[in-house]
Design a binder for these strands. Structure first.
Length: 517
RNA sequence: GCCGCGUUGGUCAAGAGGUUAAGACGCCUCCCUUUCACGGAGGAAUCACGGGUUCGAGUCCCGUACGUGGUACCA
């Protein structure tokens, strides 16, 4: 059964992600991109990234390039953007400034918007007055606009005079009272707003830049966007956008809306913020973000050792699932199975433990050759240079089911490359005796002569020697592990001995033997 | 305050009037493994509350509570 939102199949699906370059790329932002991307791909549509940089005060240098790096890491590459261009360029709103003005003027001409000359101080005075009157609304709307300094109240000549004199002004939309603005949200169904609760939003700012409200509508039209997915925080301003569509381009050309649920903090309620991540010890941004002013670095999922596959996977199932028990999805599966109508309405608390579980699952099925370089770098940062790639891959294969995050390859595998820095003998020291000592002395002699150095042979000779000495194998396995690994963890001991080689094995046994004397 | 949206175990969630209310994470027990992990078996724990509608409500309706978002010349 074709879904209702696809009834007009004559139009090619086009979606967009429209971030503001103001800082790190938040989990919620990535999920918004992901849902857009998935929808575009499954409908053979286009995925556009448009930079919404209309607020010069909040612009942060480097943030735009950073966003694209994050998208690339996630594998969410746009079809059109400031990077590769496209038929609807420019894709940066600051470069489209003049386009928006035309539409603002058009709205004024049509009587759907007006010039407002109120200064910030005057606006403040208006709100203070409203407050003292006990008004339930502090909005600039039909209740107050005829008392304000705008082209609705002023005579046309007066307005023209102010305009000619270069008086700073904004353009505000004129919202009619007592109207209903209904629309269909792909996730929430029918939603209706009462215009009495919406204010005369500023469309064009005094600096000539559009606000989000004007820019999003104009650009979505010009760029032929068919489906607009954005965060739930935009729901309250949806009526403004819908009215703008109605006034400017016609409702029949308006994209289908979907307002995505928020990602909430793990404890308590509320939107997940960077602060929560810092406080609870997990990242909130996709990649490390270095604030250009404070130089402060905020950790990203990539840098703490998440796989992009896992990151995408965990984000996809935060607020969405396909109705089956499946939890592990590759990008291809997501493209095939994602359904925007099955996205939850309510926000989801972020659970870092579960996030790590996804990473663990993906590391278990990881193609080691794909990540050998990355792991090699981790080892190098810890002072271990790896020359033998084949050996590294073998080690990775041996320990990967024990790794949750990429750096775990170091903690789980460093003893394959160097003798353990410390050997914790506390658990064997009390029961250590001369008999055991002699066993290992003999074991060294025996292994020294061994020509077949593989785990099977090693295990057999070990057990035979134990039997000959009337010792239980079980009492000797842990000491051997401690000698080779330094702690109670890791793959099978004989596998380890086999991998690190005869010389290292014997050296490590001798070292701990001396320690135990 | 006003407007909107939401609410199934601790968390993510399945669920479209009739189910012993799936499954996953985390936690606990056991098995496997002479380590850890993986794997396997099991356990504790839930429909926010109150009214309706109905033979029957987690599912539909209305209230209430709680939460959350918005209420900027920010997006």
């Amino acid at each position: 059964m074709p879904s209702s939102y696809l009834c007009n199949m004559s139009k090619k699906v086009r979606v967009r992600f429209a971030p503001s370059p103001t800082g790190g790329l938040h989990l919620g932002g990535v999920r918004t991109v992901l849902f857009n991307y998935l929808f575009a791909r499954q409908h053979d549509g286009d995925f556009i990234v448009r930079i919404e940089d209309t607020d010069q005060n909040r612009f942060v240098k480097g943030a735009e390039a950073y966003i694209f790096e994050c998208l690339q890491w996630c594998g969410l590459n746009p079809d059109e953007s400031v990077l590769q261009g496209g038929p609807y360029a420019p894709y940066r709103q600051s470069e489209r400034k003049e386009i928006y003005r035309q539409y603002a003027e058009q709205l004024v001409k049509d009587g759907r918007a007006y010039y407002a000359f109120d200064t910030p101080a005057e606006l403040e005075r208006m709100r203070d007055l409203l407050k003292t009157k006990g008004s339930s609304s502090l909005q600039y709307d039909h209740h107050v606009r005829m008392n304000m300094n705008n082209s609705l109240r002023l005579l046309p000549e007066e307005t023209q005079q102010l305009l000619d004199a270069g008086t700073p002004y904004v353009v505000r939309i004129k919202i009619n009272p007592d109207e209903f603005v209904p629309f269909t949200d792909m996730i929430r169904g029918e939603i209706s707003f009462d215009t009495n609760a919406v204010d005369d939003k500023v469309l064009l700012k005094a600096d000539g830049m559009p606000t989000y409200h004007l820019a999003v509508v104009v650009d979505d039209f010009l760029m032929k966007i068919t489906h607009a997915f954005r965060g739930e925080e935009w729901l309250p301003s949806a009526p403004v956008h819908i009215l703008l569509w109605q006034y400017l381009f016609g409702l029949e050309n308006m994209p289908q809306w979907a307002h995505l649920p928020l990602i909430l903090k793990p404890d308590g309620n509320g939107k997940l913020s960077k602060r929560d991540g810092d406080r609870l010890g997990f990242p909130v941004y996709a990649m490390d973000w270095a604030d250009p002013v404070t130089k402060e670095i905020t950790k990203g999922f990539k840098e703490i050792g998440f796989l992009p596959e896992a990151f995408i996977n965990l984000l996809a199932v935060l607020g969405w699932n396909d109705g089956t028990e499946q939890e592990i999805f590759s990008m291809e599966e997501l493209i095939a199975k994602f359904n925007i109508e099955k996205v939850h309405k309510g926000g989801a608390k972020f659970d870092f433990e579960k996030a790590k579980w996804f990473n663990h699952e993906w590391i278990k099925k990881l193609d080691v050759s794909h990540y050998a370089e990355r792991v090699k770098n981790i080892f190098e940062s810890k002072g271990i240079t790896i020359a033998d790639d084949a050996y590294l891959k073998k080690v990775m294969e041996l320990v990967k089911e024990r790794c949750t995050l990429l750096p775990d390859f170091f903690t789980q595998g460093n003893f394959f490359f160097q003798a353990p820095a410390t050997v914790d003998t506390t658990s064997i020291q009390p029961k250590w005796d001369e008999k055991k000592n002699m066993f290992f002395v003999e074991l060294i002699k025996s292994w020294q002569l061994s020509t077949l150095w593989n785990s099977g042979e090693l295990e057999i000779s070990f057990k035979e020697l134990a039997a000959a000495n009337q010792l239980k194998t079980g009492e000797l396995m842990l000491p051997l592990r401690l000698m080779l690994v330094g702690g109670k963890f890791g793959p099978g001991v004989f596998e380890i001995a086999s991998a690190i080689g005869k010389e290292s094995t014997i050296k490590r046994i001798e070292y701990t033997l001396a320690l135990l004397q």
